[in-house]
């Protein structure tokens, strides 16, 4: 795996982005992350969390500032290389699963990168094992439940063995059992994880580091314990204490 000069796998410096001229969604974001970290990006609706994620994977390229993934600047030339290192789990699993069966979808990424069939097979087996879906490998995507779809979507990313996994609202629409299952699975993954969510309890259970975004800037960056317990900080930026803490 390639890293930056200081061993960082993700480097963002003075990042600016706007959809329309004069209306910046992100204005001066700075962030570095290292291998194996788990980072929760939190913030109210419409403050640029999803935009930041899309910039990281190169879905938007017209940004200003420095944005490097695995030592490579995010630009058109490096896109293919960057996307080998980074996996993005969409909020809506239906957008992620577009082939007929779970197996075909999980094999899609590795096959596209030209891996030999035996290696594709190994990765598919391993990814499905990690999300406990080996029994459902030949199941039609259409017939999966919401929780199973989410796990299958994660498996499609795990099969690419990325260094960075980005997840947009992964706990949305999951029942408690599937949510608990997802937390367990995420905690077993060793890659750098970046999770955006409004579900602060979920962030607390899966991330050690939390970044609070508001008005296109990073307001706070620190340990999950420190930030998620700071009622005043959270409330001043449109959030509330996690339910598990507010009940105490």
């Amino acid at each position: 795996m390639h890293t930056g000069a200081k061993g960082e796998i993700l480097k963002i410096e003075d990042l600016h982005f706007s959809y329309e001229k004069g209306e910046e969604v992100l204005s001066g974001v700075n962030l570095t992350a290292h291998d194996g970290e788990s980072i929760g990006i939190i913030g109210a609706n419409g403050i640029g969390k999803s935009t930041l994620m899309k910039l990281l994977v190169g879905l938007k390229l017209d940004y200003q500032g420095v944005l490097e993934v695995a030592g490579h600047a995010v630009n058109k030339k490096n896109l293919s290389h960057i996307r080998e290192h980074i996996g993005y789990v969409f909020q809506d699993s239906d957008s992620q699963l577009f082939l007929s069966t779970v197996e075909e979808d999980v094999a899609f990424g590795p096959t596209n990168y030209g891996l030999p069939p035996e290696e594709v097979e190994r990765r598919v087996n391993e990814a499905l094992l990690k999300v406990h879906m080996t029994d459902l490998r030949t199941r039609h995507n259409y017939n999966l439940s919401g929780g199973e779809k989410k796990l299958a979507a994660i498996a499609t990313i795990l099969s690419m063995e990325p260094d960075i996994i980005i997840m947009d609202e992964p706990s949305i629409a999951l029942d408690p059992r599937n949510r608990r299952n997802l937390i367990k699975i995420l905690n077993e993954i060793n890659a750098l994880k970046i999770v955006t969510s409004h579900d602060l309890d979920f962030i607390m259970d899966t991330c050690k580091r939390v970044v609070l975004l508001d008005e296109g800037r990073i307001i706070a960056d620190g340990s999950a314990d420190e930030i998620l317990k700071d009622k005043e900080l959270l409330e001043s930026h449109g959030l509330e204490l996690p339910l598990s803490l507010s009940r105490r």
């Binding site: 993005y88 992620q96 577009f98 899609f108």
Partner: peptide
Amino acid sequence: VYESMTLRGFNGDFRVK
């Protein structure tokens, strides 16, 4: 869906096993 495909290495050619 297209974004999801490009993020998993789709470059305009479907590779079938």
